[in-house]
C-alpha cells in the first residue's frame, strides 16, 4: 500500500507535477481510462485554484478503501483569503479570478465525492474522492 503523498503547489510547473502524480496514483488504484482523465482534470483545476486565489498551497494524495472498493482521495489546502459564499463559488460561471468559473463546480461533477470547507481569512480545504468501479 502506498503511503499518502504531499505535494506543494507554488508555481505553474507544480500544476504539471500534480497532474503527473495524480495520474500515476489513479492508474495504481485501478481507475478506468475515462475516470483517470476525470480525476487528473479535476486535480489540475483545483491546483490552479489554490495557486490563483491563495498564491499557493498543497495537495495530499491518498488511496482509500470502502469495503472491497478502492478509491483515490485528493485534499487541496491553502492559507489564502478563503471563500465568503460557498454556494456562489460552486455556481457554474461564477469567478473572481478571471477564469471560466468551472474549477470548483466542474471538479464536483468530475468526482464521486466533493467536500468544500472554507471561511474568510481561514483558507480553503477541498477534498475530492473517486472510487474505482
Amino acid at each position: 500500500m502506498t503511503a499518502p503523498a504531499e505535494l506543494p503547489i507554488h508555481g505553474n510547473s507544480d500544476i504539471v507535477l500534480v497532474r503527473q502524480r495524480v495520474r500515476t496514483a489513479a492508474v495504481e488504484v485501478g481507475l478506468s481510462l475515462v475516470d483517470q482523465t476525470k480525476v487528473v482534470t479535476a486535480a489540475s483545476e483545483l491546483a490552479r485554484n489554490a495557486l490563483v486565489y491563495a498564491g499557493g498551497g498543497q495537495v495530499r494524495i491518498e488511496v482509500v478503501h470502502n469495503g472491497v472498493r478502492r478509491g483515490l482521495r485528493l485534499a487541496f489546502s491553502d492559507d489564502g483569503p478563503g471563500i465568503p459564499d460557498l454556494d456562489q463559488a460552486l455556481t457554474d460561471g461564477w469567478t473572481t479570478g478571471g477564469g471560466l468559473g468551472l474549477g470548483l463546480s466542474g471538479s464536483r461533477r468530475l468526482m464521486d465525492e466533493f467536500e468544500l470547507k472554507s471561511a474568510p481569512g481561514e483558507g480553503t480545504l477541498v477534498t475530492v474522492t473517486k472510487w474505482a468501479r
Binding site: 481510462l33 475515462v34 476525470k38 468530475l110
Partner: peptide, 14 residues
C-alpha cells in the same frame, strides 16, 4: 481529441 478527454470536457461543462 481523445474520447476520454471529450467525455471529461463535457462533464466539466466546457
Amino acid at each position: 481529441m481523445r474520447p476520454a478527454v471529450a467525455i471529461t470536457l463535457v462533464e466539466l461543462g466546457l
